[in-house]
C-alpha cells in the first residue's frame, strides 16, 4: 500500500513539466527515503535524477519498496488536471497495475481522482559516483534559461568555461558567434539573484544546447540553478525543490575525437 499526500501539489506538476520532454517512460521508486526517479533520455546523452524526500509529504505511507513504471507524458496529462493550489495524493495498492492521483481543492469542495495504467519498464539504475567538481556555479535559474535560449538561436552547442574571470557561455553558428560572460556578483538585494562561482581548477566543456534547453524546463521549480563542472565529466545542472529534494540533470559533454 502506497499513499503519499503532497500539500503543495503544484510541485509535482512542475516536476513532470520539467522532465516529460527529456524522458518518455520511467520507473518511479518509492521507499522510506522518498519518491524518486532515475532515467535517461532515449539516446543516453542525458540522465535525470529526481528526489522528493518523504519528510516533504504531509502523509507518507510506503509499506514496502515499490517501483512504478509510468509514461511521463500521460502522467503530465493527468497532473495538468490538478489545480495549482490542489493537494495531490498518489495512491497504489500492492500488486496493482494502476496508480491513482487524487486532487483536492484547498477548500475541499472538489475532489477528483484519476487512475493511470502502469507499465513494465526495463531499466537499470546507474551508479553516479560522488565527484569533487572543478567548478560550481550558482546563478539565477531564469538567467541560465535566458542564456541557453539566446545561444540556441545562434548555434547548436555551448562551450561553458569557468576561469577566475567568471563563467563564459560561448557558441558559434552559420550566422556568427556569441559569448556571454557572467561574473561573480554577490552584492545583490536578494541572495537568489547572486551569481556565485567556486573554482578549484579552470574548466571548459562543450554541450548540446538542445539538452540544456530541456533542463531549463525546470526553471519554475527553483529561483536558482547550480551547475557543477569537471573536465571530462558530465555536467550536473541542479534545481533544488524547496524543502523536499531536487531535480538533477546530468549531460555528457561533447568530446574531441
Amino acid at each position: 500500500m502506497l499513499e503519499l499526500r503532497l500539500v503543495q501539489g503544484s510541485l509535482l506538476k512542475k516536476v513532470l513539466e520539467s522532465i516529460k520532454e527529456l524522458v518518455n517512460d520511467a520507473n518511479f521508486d518509492c521507499s522510506s527515503t522518498g519518491f524518486s526517479l532515475q532515467a535517461m533520455d532515449s539516446s543516453h546523452v542525458a540522465l535525470v535524477a529526481l528526489l522528493l524526500r518523504s519528510e516533504g509529504f504531509e502523509h507518507y505511507r510506503c509499506d514496502r519498496n515499490l517501483s512504478m513504471g509510468m509514461n511521463l507524458n500521460n502522467m503530465a496529462k493527468m497532473l495538468k488536471c490538478a489545480g495549482n493550489d490542489d493537494i495531490i495524493t498518489i495512491k497504489a495498492d500492492d500488486g496493482s497495475d494502476t496508480v491513482t492521483f487524487m486532487f483536492e481543492s484547498p477548500t475541499q469542495d472538489k475532489i477528483s481522482d484519476f487512475e493511470m495504467k502502469l507499465m513494465d519498464i526495463d531499466s537499470e539504475h546507474l551508479g553516479i559516483p560522488e565527484a569533487e567538481y572543478d567548478a560550481i556555479v550558482r546563478m539565477p535559474s531564469a538567467e541560465f534559461a535566458r542564456i541557453c535560449k539566446d545561444l540556441s538561436s545562434i548555434g547548436d552547442t555551448v562551450v561553458i568555461s569557468v576561469t577566475k574571470e567568471g563563467v563564459k557561455f560561448s557558441t558559434k553558428g552559420d550566422i556568427g558567434a556569441a559569448n556571454i560572460v557572467c561574473r561573480q556578483n554577490t552584492t545583490v538585494d536578494k541572495p537568489d539573484d547572486a551569481t556565485v562561482i567556486e573554482m578549484k581548477e579552470p574548466v571548459s566543456l562543450q554541450f548540446a544546447l538542445r539538452y540544456t534547453n530541456f533542463f531549463t524546463k525546470a526553471t519554475p521549480l527553483s529561483s536558482t540553478v547550480t551547475i557543477s563542472l569537471s573536465n571530462e565529466l558530465p555536467v550536473v545542472v541542479e534545481y533544488k525543490i524547496a524543502e523536499m529534494g531536487y531535480v538533477r540533470f546530468y549531460l555528457a559533454p561533447k568530446i574531441e575525437e
Binding site: 553516479i128 555528457a252 561533447k254
Partner: peptide
Amino acid sequence: DPKQGNILSFFKKK
C-alpha cells in the same frame, strides 16, 4: 566536430 559523449561511458550500471 567533437563527438557527443554517452552517459553510459561515465556512469556504470549497478
